[in-house]
Design a protein around this nucleic acid. Structure first.
Lengths: 235, 235
DNA sequence: ACCCGTTAATGAACACAATTCATCATCTTG
DNA sequence: CAAGATGATGAATTGTGTTCATTAACGGGT
């Protein structure tokens, strides 16, 4: 006996630790190489495990990917409400949500790519935990819209889902080139522009308010009088 | 000699015909099974060819996919301008572009999926012919926006690209569930909603439109105070 | 009609990666 | 310390993209 290749040293870990090690390794390798170009052998090597061992903790490669994204999402949602609670006003709150999404894409382009092109497109996505987490991720946005509607600041004749699609669709479409590795973008400036564009579309027109000629005239005369009193406006 | 398996009958075709047959078969199989789940053997079989033969006409599987999508796109763009030329008015023309995109997704969900998740996400996408064709596909939309701006109907303080991202991003985001095979959507109704939402955001405010509520209130109070200081306005 | 160079097409072999499973190693408990 | 339970291995399997040496059909010149 004791023939053939010498068996490698076996390190036993608790199930939880092993799972954590594999997921950590997988996240790193997926981030570097994407999904299809990431061989399980690479992940196994980085996790100090043999390929076959991965199948003791994950059903298959895709399941591993799902769990990795799931884990990432959970970490992200943690301090979401806290940050949001410090911001007042429909415009500012909405802008924050857009900025947050842009920043996530900016900081983790690779993981976002996995999410966008491998998770969200899967036939079984709606039954995934990631789907539920994503709903949680976007629910805040819908709440902000609802509040804005209730406060009379926003139009109410547009379906909420369409507004969500507009916000996130625009945001993501805007970052496609970046996700491909081409160029860069500024989350702050972009968030400003998108929030402005979306809100301008949502701000309620006052159909019932008369053009207020009254106010305009009074303003005109008041300013004229003010100028007479104080001299013409300084440049 | 003449030992082993009998060699199958060899049918010779011109290069063009063979390419056409393979691409036709590939389009069908890709449409049915997607990209990764479509074995080259299936495509070869449907094209009455052996697997290896495909490599005489295409560099690899991905190249075949690219060519298939390219071919499909070219066919689509053909009668695009003709249809558009019959439509007048910024709103109607824009709505048509949105409706066209929605209809394409509705009619060819599988091919759109291939485009969205395999072509557009590739690192080399910008150097592809498909990229150029896609620019052609969306250029009309930008032209419509420009015309609307020139005519004074649309705001001019928003980057064109952002508007394009908003239109197509919203459109595609709206159809994600459908592309996953969940439920259905109505291109007509959806196009109406999106066009309305986008345009409301782009339509120039009439100069006489009353200002936003809070500003109006502040103005109201300010004028009232001014009037108190200087006496009521003279008629 | 018959060579013979050119081009279409084949099919077997290769390479590589995901997945399975029988076997072994290590821990834990009575 | 024995013995079951569980962690981990690595060789084998399977499927699929890709290569390439070989063969079949075509067609123009003699």
């Amino acid at each position: 006996m004791n023939s053939g290749t010498p068996r490698r040293q076996v390190f036993r870990l608790s199930r939880e630790q092993r799972v954590a090690e594999i997921m950590s390794a997988a996240r790193a390798v997926f981030r570097e190489k994407g999904y299809e170009d990431a061989p399980l052998s690479d992940i196994a090597e980085r996790a100090n495990v043999v390929e076959g061992s991965i199948y003791r903790y994950f059903e298959n490669k895709r399941d591993l990917l799902v769990k990795v994204i799931e884990d990432w999402y959970e970490g992200m949602l943690a301090d979401y409400d806290l940050q949001l609670s410090g911001i007042r006003g429909t415009r500012n709150r909405l802008r924050f949500m857009i900025w947050r999404h842009l920043s996530t894409i900016h900081d983790e382009p690779a993981l976002c790519n996995l999410m966008f092109q491998h998770l969200r497109t899967g036939r079984d996505y709606s039954h995934t935990a990631v789907h539920e987490l994503n709903r949680e991720y976007t629910r805040r946005t819908l709440d902000i819209i609802k509040e804005g509607m209730a406060a009379g600041e926003l139009r109410e004749d547009v379906p909420l889902r369409l507004i969500r699609d507009m916000i996130y669709g625009c945001t993501e479409h805007r970052t496609f080139a970046y996700l491909r590795g081409e160029g860069d973008f500024d989350p702050d400036a972009t968030a400003d522009m998108i929030a402005d564009l979306v809100l301008s579309g949502l701000e309620r027109r006052r159909p019932d308010t008369p053009p207020a000629p009254d106010l305009a005239e009074r303003l005109e005369r008041a300013v004229a009088r003010l100028e007479r009193m104080t001299g013409p406006a300084a440049p």
